[in-house]
Amino acid sequence: MERGISFEIPNKYGSLLGEILMPFETAKFIWRTGGEESYLLKGDELGELLFKDEINWLEGRHFKKLIEENNYYLIFTDLKAYPKNKQLDNIKTYEDYLKSECQLVLLIVDSAYVTIYCKDNESLKRLYENAKNKGFDHLQYITDKNDSRANLTVW
């Protein structure tokens, strides 16, 4: 069974979250951010944090605007998407994720290594095709057999 995808993105600034999540309907969800180290750009330098609080809930339209209309530099990113008006749980493991209302987990480590878990198979296929079309490196499906991740967090 396909759980998600993993790939590498260029270690550079831009609107990479917007590019990665392009085929996913980000505005339809509530987004949990937590413990990231990612920065908005101010000129050619790092500015304030992209996600201001250690743990934050962002409404989907605001989240979409933030990731698509800004340039930023991602170092560590931990994002989780929940349907609106559903239970917003704190997920730490794959088992927590399966039991929760969370529909998508996106983790970025060391500015380049991306892992996405997605419960909807059609959305997962679109995310895979998007990553392939963008030319992201080392793209592969995460399956029951090759998933070695113990926690669904970046820390």
Rank of each mutant, 00 (worst) to 15 (best):
Y113T: 14
V114I: 10
R3A: 06
E48S: 12
F24P: 04
K65A: 05
N133Q: 08
M1D: 12
R32L: 11
D96N: 15
E19S: 15
Q140W: 05
F24M: 11
R3N: 13
L17C: 09
G14L: 01
Y113P: 00
L46D: 08
Y72T: 04
T143A: 07
E48T: 10
D137G: 08
Y128E: 05
G47I: 02
L98A: 15
L17I: 15
C118V: 09
A131P: 00
A112W: 12
E68T: 15
A131C: 07
A112I: 15
F7M: 10
A131L: 06
L127I: 08
G47R: 02
V105Q: 14
Y13I: 08
N70P: 09
Y73D: 09
Y72N: 02
D78R: 06
F24Y: 12
N90A: 13
E69A: 02
V154A: 01
G43V: 09
I108F: 11
L139H: 10
L58S: 04
L21N: 07
R149L: 15
G60F: 05
T33V: 12
H62G: 05
H62V: 03
G34M: 11
I9Q: 04
G135K: 02
Y72F: 10
E129C: 00
I30A: 12
D110Y: 13
F51S: 04
P83Q: 15
L74S: 08
N133I: 00
W57T: 07
F24I: 10
L50C: 04
L152Q: 07
N70H: 05
N151S: 00
L88W: 13
E45T: 03
I9Y: 04
E2F: 10
N146P: 03
S100Q: 12
V109N: 15
Q140F: 03
D96I: 07
D53T: 07
E48Y: 00
T93C: 03
G43S: 06
E54T: 12
N90V: 14
K125D: 11
K125Y: 09
T143S: 12
N71T: 06
D44Q: 11
E45I: 03
F7Q: 08
T143M: 03
I55Y: 14
E122P: 00
Y128Q: 05
E25C: 10
T153A: 01
Y117N: 10
N85V: 03
K42I: 01
D78A: 13
L41Q: 05
Q140C: 13
G18W: 03
E48N: 12
F51P: 09
I67A: 04
L21A: 08
Y72R: 03
K80G: 13
K119C: 14
R3I: 07
K119L: 15
P10M: 04
Y117H: 11
Y141A: 11
F7H: 06
L74H: 07
F24Q: 05
S100W: 12
R126W: 07
V114M: 08
F24H: 06
N121F: 10
D78T: 12
E8I: 13
I116N: 06
K52L: 10
R61K: 10
V109Q: 15
E36W: 01
I20R: 02
E8T: 14
K65F: 06
F76S: 03
D44F: 09
E122Q: 14
N151H: 01
N70C: 01
E48Q: 07
K80Y: 15
G34I: 06
I116C: 05
Y39W: 14
E37K: 05
S6L: 11
N130D: 00
A27V: 01
